[in-house]
Design a protein around this nucleic acid. Sequence first.
DNA 1: CTAAGTGCAAATGATTTGCAGGTAT
DNA 2: ATACCTGCAAATCATTTGCACTTAG
Lengths: 157, 157
Amino acid sequence: MSATARKRLDAMAAKVKASGLKLTPQRLAIMRLLAESEDHPGADGIWRRLKRRFPGISQATVYRTVQLVKSLGEACEIAFADGGSRYDGRKPYPHPHIVCLACGRIIDPELRSLGDMTREAATASGFEIKTFRLDFFGTCPECSKNKTKTMPTRRIK
Amino acid sequence: MSATARKRLDAMAAKVKASGLKLTPQRLAIMRLLAESEDHPGADGIWRRLKRRFPGISQATVYRTVQLVKSLGEACEIAFADGGSRYDGRKPYPHPHIVCLACGRIIDPELRSLGDMTREAATASGFEIKTFRLDFFGTCPECSKNKTKTMPTRRIK
DNA sequence: CTAAGTGCAAATGATTTGCAGGTAT
DNA sequence: ATACCTGCAAATCATTTGCACTTAG
C-alpha cells in the first residue's frame, strides 16, 4: 500500500471514528479499496473484488459504506447516465474526468483553465457556484490505435 | 409558438418522417413541448403537462418519444445523480448548465473558455474528445437574496 | 391494408431499507 | 453491555419492455 493511499485510508478511518461510528473489517476493506484504487471502481466492482476475502459480504454493506465515506467528504461519486456510479477515494473533491467510450477507462486530467471557466460561469450567471461536474468523453490513445469499435454509447444522464 | 420553437419542432418532425416513422398526435405534442420549453423539463413533468390535453397518454409514450427524439439528435438529455433526467429540445447539442441547488432552476451559460478547455483536455490526455458534460451547481441570485435553505443536496451521479 | 404506435401493467436494474441476529468498543 | 453493523430479502423508483389493440400513411 502506497504512502498516499495509507494517508487517504487514515483520513477516512479518522472521520469514521470521529463520528462515533465503528471500524468493522468490512468497512476497513472497502475504505482501503477506495483509498488505493486508481480505476474509479463501481459499487458492484468493489463488491466483487471484496468477496474473495469476505465470502459473505453483502452489496448492501458496500453501498452503505461507500455512501458513508462520501457523506464524510472522503470520497466522491461519479454517477453516469446509465445508472451506474463509480467512486474515487483518492481525490475526494470534485475534479474533471475523461472517459474512454471504447474501454471505459477514466483518467483525471489537470486542467489549468478550469478555475477561469468557473469564474466565467459565476460572472456570466450571477450564481454563487458551489461545485461542478465535468466529464469529457472520447477515445483513449490505445483504443484509437486499435480502431476498436465504440462501446454502445451510454445514456449520458 | 415562437419562430425558433417552430424551427426546432419542424426539424424534429422532419427527422421522424425521414426515418419512416409516424407523426402521431402524442409525438407532436411531446416534441412541441420539447421544442418550446425553456425550463429543461423531465419526463414526468412532460407527462403531467400533457395529460391535461391527452387524458389517456402514458408515461411509456413520453419516455419512448423523448428517447426517439434524442436518438435522432434533436434533443439532449441532462441526467442527474438522483436518477432523474431532464431534456432540452431547444439546444440539441451538448452544452454546459448551471443548476440552482435551492430552486432547481437550470440555465445555459455562454462560456467563451469552454473551447480552450476542451482543447486542453485533449492535449493533456491524448484522447480524441467526442463530447462532454459540464454542470455547475450553486445558488441563483434570487435564492441567494432570499437566503433560502439549500435543497437536500442531490446525489450528483 | 399493415407496419408503427399506444396504453397498460409487469419487468428491470441499480440502489435502499426493514429486520433479526452479530460485534466493535 | 449496547449502540452500531451486517446479511438477507423485500422494497424503491425512474425507466423499459411485452403484449394486444389502435392508427397513421
